[in-house]
Simulated scan of single mutants.
Amino acid sequence: MRRVVLVAYDNAQLLDVSCTSDVFDGANRLGVTPGYEVTLATVGGRAVRCSGGLTLAAHARLDQVRGPVDTVLVAGGFGHEDAAGDTRLITHVRRLAAEARRVASVCTGATVLAAAGLLRGRRATTHWGWAARLAARHPDVTVDPAPLFVRDGNVYTSAGVTSALDLSLALVEEDHGASVARDIARYLVVYLQRPGNQAQMSMFLTTPPPDHEPLRDLVSYICAHPADDLGTEALAARTGVSARHLTRLFTTHLGASPSRYVRTVRVEAAARLLSTSDLPLASVARRCGFGSAHTLRQAFVAHYDTSPSTYRRMLRGGGPHDRASIGMRPPATTAST
């Protein structure tokens, strides 16, 4: 069995624990060989109270877990800063990491890995809401808040909460192949393995409606009509302001020029069509305001670091893919998170 040591602490996020353990359990139920033996380890072997109020009983005392182990995985949660300041927890995470084939964190568990020195000189991600703080406290870590998960050598970090599913499925795929990971995803009724370089949150969620009412109406129009003439002059005329003033409004309220914002809307609209329809690329391009499939491809690669056809194939689980490099470059964003 592959030994997985899942490290938790008070105020950990229950989903960070359950998502990972259920993916490994799903692999075992499919009869993979070798399977996974998941051990929930805590300081002193104490039960931990999760941030949602439920209490988890530990399998083992962290100081009594001995290597070698296959995977050390640290959960995230609101207690991550206290956990990072616990010298006992940090000492044993560092010790086990030295004897593990790979080390991983979910969400703000990256704070614990960083405190243990395991992210030094590496690229990593974490929950988008904590990325700036992690970067400020650990300047020796290249923190990228965009991807769902990042692999740097044998160290894996993932974004917030349910990205634990994406990371765990990727780990299982690495061990047992894409078909096993897809079967687990189907069993858990989850999205069929989002690529690691997909943004943590869609721009339609991360960018709140602007307070400026005419601009808010214009943004709604852009999102609903990506195939229309959305040039700066045309948008300015629709809003009743000059092109220069419109550019100032977009920069102030949305952190991007009108053209950049429109391009991102169109690319994300294309991504939705690619994942929900069988339309040929030329049709997707036309519906989303791109002049041709070639123009769509250029914009798509710039945003997602993968081609439209590869993106569609990955989302539908078609064909083998080398996921080792996925998540190694962030997609473009229109506004900081």
Rank of each mutant, 00 (worst) to 15 (best):
S179E: 15
L230Y: 05
V172F: 05
D217V: 14
R194F: 06
V189Y: 07
T125Y: 04
D144S: 07
R120L: 06
G160P: 06
Q198I: 13
S220I: 10
T232A: 14
D166R: 01
L218D: 09
L171H: 04
L171I: 14
R122I: 06
Y156H: 14
M203A: 13
V190C: 06
D228K: 11
G117A: 08
H138S: 13
G129V: 13
V150E: 01
L113V: 00
A146L: 07
V155Y: 02
G129Y: 11
T162E: 06
S179Q: 15
V219S: 06
G121P: 05
G153K: 03
T206L: 12
P226L: 08
P195S: 12
R182L: 15
A146P: 00
G117M: 02
L171N: 04
H212F: 11
L134G: 04
L118F: 08
L165N: 05
T207R: 10
H212K: 07
H176V: 02
V112H: 05
P210M: 09
V143W: 02
V150N: 01
H138T: 06
L167N: 01
Y191K: 08
A135D: 09
R216G: 14
Y191H: 11
G196S: 08
G117W: 00
G177Y: 10
A116H: 02
V143K: 03
A227F: 03
T142N: 07
Q198E: 15
E173A: 12
N197V: 12
P226S: 12
R151P: 01
I184F: 06
P195I: 10
A170W: 03
G153R: 01
G121E: 10
R120N: 13
D140T: 05
G160A: 15
L205M: 12
P214N: 13
L113Q: 04
H212Q: 12
P145M: 07
R151M: 01
H225I: 09
A224N: 09
P214W: 11
R182Q: 14
Y191V: 11
V112K: 05
A114P: 00
W128P: 00
A115P: 00
A185Y: 03
G177R: 12
H176Y: 06
E233R: 15
A135M: 02
D175H: 05
A185C: 08
L188H: 10
L165A: 05
V141H: 09
S179R: 13
Y156W: 15
T126H: 03
V190I: 13
V189H: 10
H176I: 01
V189I: 14
G177M: 10
L205D: 14
D183E: 15
A178E: 14
T232W: 08
P214Q: 14
G129S: 12
R216P: 03
L167K: 03
R122D: 10
A135C: 06
H138K: 07
P210N: 08
S163V: 02
A227D: 13
V112L: 11
V190H: 04
V161L: 14
R194Y: 07
H127A: 11
G153I: 01
T162H: 04
A181I: 12
T142Q: 09
